[in-house]
């Protein structure tokens, strides 16, 4: 019996090799990963644009050059035909897909139950709720929702991973957000731009932001992404641009650098 009692004594075993004194060895499971990429949304008076690159990464590996980040929400079939709302997700792609599918289901159910399509503002509030429901195990994504509001104006809502949201004129998200966002401040909201000759000192008048025409916005989106591709390794391959107007949703792809 004494030999059994010895178990409690915790003698050190005399191995020839050194023992690690650390506690339990464990290979922790981390349920998130970052799949890189960047997204961007800009609105105009009668349209909204959501764009994203199509590169998927894990670490320094490129998983695929064609994984879209912008999705049509509440369409009638698999292709998203008939949808009026668009969602972009960037961050952890598996969470992004799960979030997209939940919102898609919700918007479809709304249409079946109420016999009318869900408004963007209602969808925006619902998305916030979905994100907040997972407050303590969040969807690790930055979401941007776009569509046309009740007056037909472009509407854009941006979210943090736990559901804080805000309607904005423009927003960049993802890996290259810090590169793109100040460029957008300057070119879309005319931040730091003044009207020449309007006065000295405090009398100098700031240039007022006004809704930009569609072609200008398309140009800005492409410029923003070609710039981001140049300086961020996780951004590249293709640019997916989704344009929402009263006539429906148009989706176009442009090549970006593949290095």
């Amino acid at each position: 019996m004494t030999s059994l009692m010895d178990h409690q004594a915790r003698e050190t075993v005399g191995y020839s090799f050194s023992e690690s004194t650390a506690g339990v060895k464990q290979h922790g499971f981390y349920p998130y990963t970052d799949n890189g990429g960047s997204t961007l949304g800009i609105t105009g008076s009668d349209f909204a644009i959501l764009a994203g690159d199509t590169r998927s990464t894990s670490g320094y590996n490129i998983n695929s050059r064609m994984v879209p980040k912008v999705f049509k929400i509440g369409g009638d079939d698999e292709t998203g035909e008939g949808a009026t709302i668009v969602l972009s997700v960037v961050g952890f792609a598996a969470d992004g897909n799960a979030l997209k599918e939940r919102l898609d289901t919700v918007v479809k159910m709304y249409k079946y139950q109420h016999g009318k399509p869900m408004s963007v503002s209602a969808c925006a509030q619902r998305l916030s709720t979905i994100l907040y429901q997972k407050r303590f195990f969040p969807y690790y994504v930055h979401a941007i929702l776009a569509g046309l509001d009740e007056e037909g104006k472009g509407a854009l809502y941006s979210y943090d991973p736990v559901g804080s949201y805000e309607r904005e004129q423009c927003r960049a998200a993802g890996a290259a957000a810090s590169l793109i966002m100040p460029f957008l401040d300057n070119q879309v909201n005319f931040k730091n731009q003044y009207i020449p000759g309007s006065g000295e000192g405090h009398a100098l008048a700031a240039k007022k932001p006004e809704p930009l025409p569609l072609e200008t916005v398309k140009g800005l989106v492409r410029d923003a992404f070609t710039s981001a591709v140049e300086r961020h390794i996780e951004v590249g391959d293709n640019l997916q641009m989704v344009i929402i107007t009263k006539d429906g949703i148009e989706e176009v792809y442009h090549p970006l650098k593949k290095d």
Binding site: S178, P182, F183, S227, A228, E230
Partner: peptide, 11 residues
């Protein structure tokens, strides 16, 4: 520097 890379590359 990140923000500057973005604005410089764009402007």
């Amino acid at each position: 520097s990140d923000q500057l890379f973005g604005t410089c590359e764009g402007l």
